[in-house]
């Protein structure tokens, strides 16, 4: 992966994280939940999540401007790991909530279980796959460079 491709990827995910984070902070402060297609802003600790996403976005921008390739990759990995933490917690909550049943049932029915996975999802969950791809690319690039 050359420098330009990496910078383009960093810019894309950086803009996505930064804008999504700002919107989360905004919706969190006004206490509203907004849903568009499979994307939702709102829920518990929205401001906290938003601040982390804004920070991750800023870190991606720092990484673009970083001349040292190791520093650049490390900053990108750090920002990705911040997205993983919040996205991972969202997924864990969804999985655990989908297992337990309602009144009088220990385990959910199959249809109820699956309904938890139709979305909508918070931005961090949607950014998660992109950040995973980015880290895989960075790591393989690092391995190739010895």
């Amino acid at each position: 992966m050359n420098q330009k491709t990496l910078d383009t990827l960093l810019a894309l995910i950086g803009v996505g994280s930064f804008i999504a984070g700002l919107l989360e902070v905004l919706f969190g402060l006004v206490g509203e939940t907004y849903t568009w297609q499979i994307l939702t802003f709102g829920g518990d600790f929205t401001v906290w999540r938003g601040l982390i996403l804004v920070s991750a976005g800023t870190l991606f921008f720092f990484a673009i401007n970083q001349a040292n390739p190791i520093q650049k990759k490390a900053q990108a990995v750090l920002a990705c790991s911040m997205i993983w933490i919040i996205g991972g917690i969202e997924i864990l909550s969804t999985v655990l909530n989908s297992v337990t049943g309602g009144e009088g049932a220990w385990i959910n029915t199959v249809s109820e279980f699956l309904s938890h996975y139709y979305g909508p999802f918070t931005p961090s969950v949607l950014l998660l796959p992109i950040s995973i791809v980015l880290v895989i690319l960075v790591r393989s690039n690092e391995a190739n460079n010895g």
């Binding site: 991750a56 800023t58 870190l59 933490i85 917690i89 864990l92 655990l96 337990t100």
Partner: peptide
Amino acid sequence: LTGIPFALAVLYGFWGFFDAFAGFFTDGF
């Protein structure tokens, strides 16, 4: 500059995990 935002994420992960895990066992079972 980089450590504090990361610490913020770690603490979020801490409480998020705590909430999800403890809630799953307490409320669910």
